Amino acid sequence: MTTASNNAPTTYFNLHTQGIGYLNRVREVPVRRGQPFMACDIAALHGASDDVEYTRFDCKVSSGEAERLIREHLEDVRAERKVLIAFRIGDLWVDPFLYEKGERKGQPGASLKGRLIFIEWIKVDGQFSYRAPARTDSPAAIDAAAESDQADTVAEQHQPASAPARNSTAARQSA
């Protein structure tokens, strides 16, 4: 990061997390002072292809294009269709909390939060419904596309009976 005087722009380093996961719990979050915002959970796939694990991210939808796409697929999520997305999250952070109910009452927990900034593609029940325009501005984009196709195939082979969804409130109360 560089910060210079004399009105020179500040430069930042970006830390992005990208992956493939199931879209869950799409909601509009009211704010006391200010505009409400859209949020969602993503159950991201990771681990060995024959033993897939999930990590849940609670995301604020931060780009106009991502918000438009999430809104277009809101009914699919509500209808409990399997909505699989290739995503990019920025500004990942941990939100610690204490369980308020259930077996874990009083115990600490944590939620991974971030900003959903890009959606590369969306599949609903295994069928493509959206693909972002191809980026050909770098060799890394070509490699990422090939890797994404391979990961997509693995994800389709390991779809759970129902996409894993964890309502953080329910998780805190029942876990």
Rank of each mutant, 00 (worst) to 15 (best):
M1I: 06
N7C: 14
T10V: 15
T10N: 10
T10I: 13
F13M: 08
F13Y: 06
N14S: 15
H16F: 07
R25D: 09
R27Y: 03
R27H: 06
V29H: 00
P30A: 13
V31L: 14
R32E: 08
P36W: 07
P36T: 10
P36D: 09
M38R: 04
C40T: 09
I42N: 01
A44F: 03
A44W: 01
H46G: 11
G47C: 13
G47H: 05
A48L: 10
Y54N: 08
K60T: 15
E65W: 00
E65Q: 10
E65H: 13
E65F: 04
E67R: 10
R71L: 10
R71V: 07
H73K: 05
L74V: 11
D76C: 09
V77R: 01
R78F: 08
R78L: 12
K82V: 03
L84R: 02
L84T: 03
L84C: 08
I85C: 07
I85E: 00
A86F: 02
I89L: 10
I89V: 15
L92E: 07
W93R: 15
V94H: 04
P96F: 03
L98T: 12
E100D: 14
G102K: 06
G102M: 07
G106H: 05
G106V: 05
G106Q: 05
Q107W: 06
P108G: 00
G109S: 05
G109T: 08
A110Y: 10
S111E: 05
S111L: 09
R115A: 11
I119G: 03
G126Q: 05
G126L: 00
F128D: 14
S129A: 07
S129D: 09
Y130F: 15
Y130G: 08
R131W: 05
A140N: 05
I142C: 09
D143R: 12
A144M: 13
A145T: 09
S148N: 12
Q150H: 14
A151L: 15
A155G: 09
E156W: 02
H158N: 13
P160K: 02
A161P: 01
S162M: 09
A163Y: 01
P164G: 03
A165F: 02
R166S: 07
N167F: 07
S168A: 04
A171N: 03
R172Q: 12
